[in-house]
């Protein structure tokens, strides 16, 4: 305990990190992710709070969260529940409103995002003064675990085919301005980093939009609070596309982005919201866009 306290002192630079945990039916995962967060924040000595935004989960996630609050204290575990399932995007907005930190960390509560990377995010942010730091599964030691072939395929279609098409069709046209710049980048990238962008990375989007980040749909990120507020205000899309729009807009607004390789271990407990009808909705979305844009 004593060493922890001196650690806190050592890190007493006034920065506070608010972790936003949106949950929907994460009864089994929530205690584990909170335990891990407490462990790694405790070890690294940064000041933090965990904000749980539960959307009226029928499995009793909120009751578990209340128990955790008793165990770890109200200053560490903050509960900001909502009565019904209103979606991830608005969950973040709701959470930010109550965040006391000057930095916000967004992550999934399903254990696919491991808290051990947070100290690395923070270090990276401090090193480069970045406006946001994004975890990437596509660089360095990054990767995934637990995806069977079918899921890899669905993910691939979603992130490498569907999203890029969506974005290029919808035409974030202002991003087209820097075409020359883009070509230069592509050439130098392909000379120096032949594989970093091809490993499941969102190739078309990378080429068209140059968002400056290799993992567009991953949602494990650290933001300066005011940057996140500004981005959330600007973003129009919902669901999975939201994460991607955030990073594309971040680049558009001239924010600096740092990257940290992360391993992504697929959820062990609970329901995945990624079902077989993903392909159907992918095709539907594509056709709708074709017909309307």
């Amino acid at each position: 305990m004593a060493s922890r306290r001196s650690d806190t002192k050592r890190r007493g630079d006034g920065d506070k990190y608010s972790v936003l945990l949106p949950t929907y039916n994460e009864r089994e995962n929530l205690p584990l992710i909170v335990w891990l967060l407490v462990k790694y924040f405790g070890e690294s000595g940064y000041d933090y709070e965990i904000i749980v935004i539960d959307d009226g989960s029928p499995d009793g996630t909120l009751q578990v969260a209340e128990q955790l609050q008793k165990i770890y204290g109200e200053d560490k575990i903050v509960l900001r529940p909502r009565a019904q399932k209103l979606g991830l995007g608005t969950a973040y907005i709701h959470g930010i409103k109550h965040a006391k930190g000057n930095f916000i960390i967004i992550m999934d509560a399903d254990l696919s995002h491991h808290p051990k990377f947070i100290p690395e995010f923070i270090k990276k942010q401090k090193e480069g003064g970045y406006d946001l730091v994004s975890g990437t599964r596509y660089k360095g030691d990054g990767g995934v675990y637990g995806w069977d072939l079918r899921r890899k395929l669905i993910r691939y279609l979603r992130e490498d085919v569907y999203f890029p098409l969506l974005f290029s069709l919808c035409g974030l046209s202002s991003l087209w301005n820097s075409v020359n710049d883009t070509l230069l980048h592509i050439i130098s990238d392909s000379l120096t980093l032949p594989f970093s962008h091809s490993r499941g990375a969102n190739f078309i989007t990378q080429v068209l939009l140059r968002p400056g980040a290799s993992d567009l749909t991953g949602s494990f990120r650290l933001y300066k609070k005011e940057v996140l507020e500004r981005l959330v205000e600007k973003c129009v899309s919902k669901g999975y596309v939201f994460q991607m729009e955030m990073i594309v807009r971040a680049r558009q607004l001239g924010y600096t982005i740092g990257e940290v390789p992360i391993s992504f271990v697929d959820r062990v407990y609970g329901e995945s919201k990624l079902g077989g009808n993903e392909i159907v909705s992918f095709l539907k979305g594509l056709l709708t866009l074709f017909a309307t844009t």
């Binding site: 990054g142 990767g143 995934v144 490993r199 499941g200 391993s263 992504f264 271990v265």
Partner: peptide, 8 residues
């Protein structure tokens, strides 16, 4: 791309 996804 599917085959070269890093397995952790």
């Amino acid at each position: 791309r599917v085959a070269t996804f890093n397995d952790c």
